Simulated assay, not measured.
Amino acid sequence: MSATSERRERERAQRHQLIITAARELAETEGWEAVTTRRLADRVEYSQPVLYSHFNGKDAIVSAVALDGFGELADQLRRARQSVAAPGPAALGAVCRTYLRFATERPALYQAMFILPTTLTFASAETPASLQACFEQFVSCFPPDGEQRDLAAEVVWSALHGLAVLAENGRIPPEGQEDRVELLIARIAGLR
């Protein structure tokens, strides 16, 4: 590849990331309904055709934002899990609390990752590595020789998602979230 081609590819990757960052910032400040190609084009100072050369519409932009979010979440969950010496209740508690904190602190990003339509594939051979890495952090909280580790991880993740969405929408009070996490670990995860 020539130096000119490499430079063009670098510039394209930078534009791509600039669009993702702008979409994320706009969603975080004004909500996803404010994220339109026209607004993004104005914000990044490129034409709408340039945006469409990177993304085939809003769903593709949301998917790219979500993919970035899964990378961040995977890193945070990994650090939380590794902050505890071994698989078990303490590791699962650290991962659960980190997950809920992420959902609370980044509601627009969480919405892109789990609520809005995306092109991302879950639980299949086509699942992106960052999504798999998130799931693996939950699985790794259970003893390696434990039965149904993947199933237990799915149930815990599903319960946390429910807690996050219900809390965000005011359906359950924010106080008591720690008690919910403790109950989840004690009963559903069967680690206590």
Rank of each mutant, 00 (worst) to 15 (best):
M1H: 14
S2C: 09
S2K: 08
S2L: 13
A3H: 14
T4N: 12
R7E: 13
E9M: 04
R10M: 04
R10W: 06
A13N: 08
Q14A: 06
R15H: 08
H16P: 04
H16F: 02
Q17T: 12
L18V: 02
L18C: 06
I19F: 10
I19H: 04
I20K: 05
A23T: 04
R24V: 00
R24A: 02
E25R: 14
A27G: 11
E28S: 08
E28V: 02
E30I: 02
E33N: 10
E33V: 10
V35F: 14
V35W: 14
V35A: 12
T36A: 01
L40H: 05
A41M: 03
D42Y: 09
D42S: 12
E45I: 01
Y46A: 01
P49R: 00
V50C: 05
S53H: 14
F55I: 00
F55A: 00
F55G: 01
F55Q: 00
D59M: 13
A60Q: 13
I61P: 00
I61Y: 01
V62G: 02
V65T: 09
A66D: 03
G69W: 06
L77Y: 08
L77V: 04
R78G: 00
R78Q: 05
Q82P: 10
Q82W: 15
S83Y: 15
S83Q: 12
A86I: 07
G88H: 13
A90T: 05
A91W: 14
L92W: 07
G93L: 01
V95K: 02
V95Q: 02
Y99F: 12
Y99W: 09
R101M: 04
R101P: 06
F102K: 08
T104Y: 11
R106N: 09
A108H: 15
A108N: 13
L109R: 03
A112P: 15
F114M: 11
F114R: 15
L116G: 08
P117Y: 12
A123C: 08
S124W: 14
E126H: 14
L131H: 13
L131S: 06
Q132A: 11
E136Y: 09
Q137H: 08
Q137D: 09
Q137N: 13
F138G: 02
S140W: 11
F142W: 08
P143F: 01
P143G: 03
P144Q: 04
D145N: 09
G146P: 05
Q148Y: 15
R149H: 01
R149G: 01
L151K: 15
A152L: 12
A152D: 09
A153L: 07
A153F: 11
V155I: 10
V156S: 05
L160K: 01
G162Y: 15
E168G: 06
N169H: 15
N169R: 15
G170F: 10
P173R: 07
P173V: 04
P174L: 06
E175H: 10
G176H: 07
G176Q: 05
Q177T: 11
D179Y: 15
D179F: 13
I185W: 02
R187Q: 14
A189E: 01
A189W: 05
G190I: 01
L191R: 00
